[in-house]
Amino acid sequence: MEEKILKALQEKGAMRPGDIAAAAGVEKAEADKAIKKLVKEGKVYSPKRCFYDIQK
């Protein structure tokens, strides 16, 4: 799950959680959980409100 989300962010850049879920081909609720986990791990961050991108 996390790998799909990271790949989608690498390909398309900063996106909203719903867009990330669609790009990764997963349910939005599942994507939300995975995004929160990735933020805690420091792999993803929020450059502006309601958007997420890969930590560079």
Results as ranks from 00 to 15, higher is better:
residue 36 K to H: 14
residue 56 K to L: 00
residue 13 G to Y: 06
residue 4 K to W: 03
residue 17 P to C: 00
residue 12 K to H: 15
residue 46 S to H: 05
residue 29 A to Q: 13
residue 4 K to I: 02
residue 14 A to K: 09
residue 55 Q to N: 15
residue 39 V to K: 11
residue 39 V to M: 15
residue 16 R to A: 12
residue 43 K to G: 04
residue 27 E to M: 07
residue 28 K to M: 05
residue 5 I to P: 02
residue 54 I to C: 00
residue 1 M to W: 04
residue 43 K to P: 06
residue 42 G to K: 07
residue 9 L to G: 08
residue 48 K to H: 12
residue 19 D to T: 07
residue 33 K to P: 00
residue 24 A to P: 09
residue 38 L to D: 08
residue 34 A to W: 04
residue 8 A to Y: 09
residue 13 G to M: 05
residue 11 E to S: 05
residue 26 V to T: 12
residue 21 A to L: 07
residue 43 K to E: 09
residue 51 F to H: 15
residue 10 Q to L: 06
residue 34 A to E: 12
residue 33 K to C: 00
residue 2 E to V: 00
residue 22 A to M: 08
residue 19 D to F: 00
residue 13 G to D: 01
residue 1 M to I: 10
residue 26 V to A: 01
residue 50 C to W: 14
residue 8 A to V: 09
residue 3 E to Q: 15
residue 15 M to C: 05
residue 40 K to R: 15
residue 23 A to F: 11
residue 9 L to F: 12
residue 9 L to I: 10
residue 51 F to N: 03
residue 30 E to C: 01
residue 10 Q to W: 03
residue 11 E to H: 05
residue 16 R to Y: 08
residue 37 K to R: 14
residue 36 K to P: 00
residue 6 L to G: 12
residue 34 A to T: 10
residue 28 K to P: 06
residue 30 E to W: 03
residue 13 G to I: 08
residue 11 E to R: 12
residue 47 P to S: 02
residue 33 K to L: 12
residue 27 E to Y: 04
residue 35 I to F: 06
residue 13 G to A: 05
residue 15 M to G: 07
residue 48 K to P: 05
residue 35 I to P: 08
residue 40 K to V: 11
residue 20 I to K: 01
residue 50 C to L: 11
residue 29 A to I: 11
residue 54 I to A: 01
residue 35 I to D: 05
residue 2 E to C: 01
residue 12 K to Y: 15
residue 35 I to S: 01
residue 32 D to F: 05
residue 24 A to Y: 07
residue 44 V to S: 04
residue 47 P to G: 03
residue 21 A to F: 07
residue 25 G to S: 01
residue 27 E to W: 02
residue 51 F to D: 01
residue 3 E to A: 11
residue 23 A to H: 13
residue 5 I to F: 01
residue 41 E to R: 12
residue 47 P to T: 05
residue 21 A to S: 04
residue 54 I to F: 03
residue 37 K to F: 03
residue 45 Y to I: 09
residue 18 G to T: 11
residue 10 Q to T: 10
residue 41 E to G: 02
residue 40 K to W: 03
residue 38 L to T: 08
residue 21 A to K: 06
